[in-house]
């Protein structure tokens, strides 16, 4: 029958197809070990990624507490600094009183009182450490707030993707995000942001991580500059 008969051209096409399939198998032979390795790698690395993501989530959740700890540290050192200042001022006041009532010819007493006053002044000026450390803590607090906001933005972007909820949750859970925790976190987010960024005696601008600056000047360089 003519319809069941295979023409020479058809044979040619079949042979071409077979060659294509063969070359595909050849490619497959090369790619399969790689794919196998890739799947093994993914299988091994996946729990690690989950651990990392879990850690990120935990850390994100701990940040407000850490910020609060920093605030407490600043407040406590402020109190301590004030107490020291009060004592030092009392000492200075006593020295002043003693000097006024001292015998002007008693050089030894005058010298001792002078030394006490100098020590008191040295303690007072050393208390500048409090302001310097506080400023650094405030900066750390801002960096922490910035990191937390970036993390939440990242997770939020995934969460807000226009894809099916199941897929979204799968993606988030792949990153170790606990969906329930995340929901709660999203609800608290606004409060957390405002809590971490408000009420600090901060530098001039809104939260920003400063880019590395040029070389540091020491006081001698500055003195040279001003002549």
């Amino acid at each position: 029958m003519e319809s069941s008969m295979i023409k020479n051209d058809d044979y040619g096409e079949i042979i071409t197809r077979i060659k294509q399939i063969k070359s595909l198998f050849a490619f497959g032979e090369g790619i399969l070990p790689f794919l196998e390795e890739l799947f093994v790698f993914l299988r091994e690395v996946s729990p690690l990624l989950n651990d990392v993501s879990e850690s990120i989530m935990n850390t994100t959740g701990l940040m407000p507490d850490a910020a609060s700890e920093l605030d407490t540290a600043v407040a406590e050192t402020t109190d301590a600094t004030y107490q020291i200042m009060n004592r030092v001022e009392q000492i200075m006041s006593h020295v002043d009183t003693l000097e006024m009532g001292a015998n002007p010819e008693d050089m030894e007493a005058a010298m001792m009182l002078g030394e006490i006053r100098n020590d008191a002044i040295a303690i007072m000026t050393a208390l500048q450490f409090h302001d310097i450390v506080s400023q650094k803590l405030v900066h750390v607090r801002k960096v922490m707030a910035e990191i937390q906001i970036k993390m939440l933005q990242l997770f939020t972007r995934v969460y807000e993707l226009h894809i099916e909820d199941e897929i979204k949750e799968n993606i988030l859970s792949t990153f170790g995000v606990n969906i329930e925790k995340f929901h709660n976190m999203m609800e608290k987010k606004i409060n957390v942001d405002s809590r971490m960024t408000a009420d600090s005696p901060a530098p001039e601008s809104p939260i920003k991580v400063q880019a590395p600056q040029t070389s540091a000047f020491n006081q001698n360089d500055i003195d040279d500059l001003f002549g």
């Binding site: 310097i132 040029t214 000047f217 360089d221 500059l225």
Partner: peptide
């Protein structure tokens, strides 16, 4: 101030 970078000093000047 605590700011001791060269750029800071120049900005202040």
């Amino acid at each position: 101030t605590t700011r001791g970078m060269k750029d800071d000093v120049l900005q202040a000047v």
